[in-house]
């Protein structure tokens, strides 16, 4: 199974931000996407998830989950095809709890035929759901009390990131994009998050890790590292590329003054 990004160009307020991006992520692979600030990393994440703020263009353009063309699908339809985005700044939704959201999301994946479900995304009974939620939240050191609170409201940056990871693991997506999941994490939280990524990988999820730093990649080693600079994919390599960036920065790939 693969997520195929085929000649994707994206603009925001008629300004082109991403130019002709092509990328293929296979099940169980970890791809790190690195690049300086403002290079278009979050725009890529948002447009893959179908954020309508961004205008996607290009005649040859296709985003595919396997053979299914999702280019013209709405955000929720992409989610049901098995795409997941962990947000850089998860927004607060007062009065809605994580279990409430997850239960709704999982129930939605009940109805479509088997083939349309996300990987191993079975309809869960109430008690199965609770059991799994309990185990998973323990795994990420998330106190039970957090699950009673409003989504992303009055949580620290690191706590929000853990809750994003919790959702990813509960939803078992085919492909997951982690947009700067490592920012604001202390070293213990970082290890926990990396463990989550590895678990998803083991279960066959294809993963894009968007990051500025090599440190998370030490714990969740990428199969590929891509560099996005000024809206273009400029280089692809293996994990040593991340080390090189850590040492020398992005000077080599961009004309911008950093």
């Amino acid at each position: 199974m693969s997520l195929i990004i085929d000649h994707l160009s994206v603009s925001l307020n008629s300004k082109e931000i991403l130019h002709d991006i092509s990328l293929m992520i296979k099940s169980g692979e970890i791809h790190a996407l690195m690049g300086p600030n403002g290079s278009g990393k979050s725009t890529l994440a948002g447009s893959l998830m179908g954020n309508e703020t961004y205008k996607v263009k290009g005649e040859r353009l296709k985003v595919k989950v396997d053979d299914k063309d999702i280019t013209n699908l709405k955000t929720e339809e992409r989610a049901r095809e098995g795409l997941f985005l962990a947000f850089q700044n998860p927004i607060a939704v007062p009065g809605v709890t994580v279990p409430n959201l997850l239960r709704t999301a999982l129930n939605l994946s009940k109805n479509p035929p088997e083939s349309k479900r996300a990987v191993n995304n079975p309809a869960l009974s109430f008690s199965e759901f609770n059991k799994r939620l309990l185990t998973t939240s323990k795994q990420f050191n998330i106190p039970q009390e957090f699950l009673k609170r409003s989504l992303n409201e009055e949580f620290s940056g690191g706590e929000k990131k853990k809750l994003e990871m919790l959702q990813a693991v509960m939803l078992k997506p085919k492909f997951a994009i982690f947009d700067e999941i490592d920012t604001g994490l202390d070293v213990d939280a970082l290890k926990i998050i990396a463990r989550g990524i590895l678990e998803l990988k083991k279960n066959g999820t294809g993963i894009i890790v968007i990051t500025h730093y090599n440190r998370i990649l030490k714990y969740a080693q990428p199969d590929y590292v891509h560099i996005l600079a000024d809206g273009s994919l400029v280089e692809t390599g293996n994990k040593s590329l991340a080390l090189e960036i850590e040492k020398n920065g992005y000077k080599k790939w961009t004309n911008k003054i950093l």
Partner: peptide, 14 residues
């Protein structure tokens, strides 16, 4: 907000 809608839609909600 559109951000709130996008977040929830990204979890599969219409």
């Amino acid at each position: 907000g559109n951000d709130q809608l996008f977040y929830l839609q990204s979890r599969g909600l219409k």
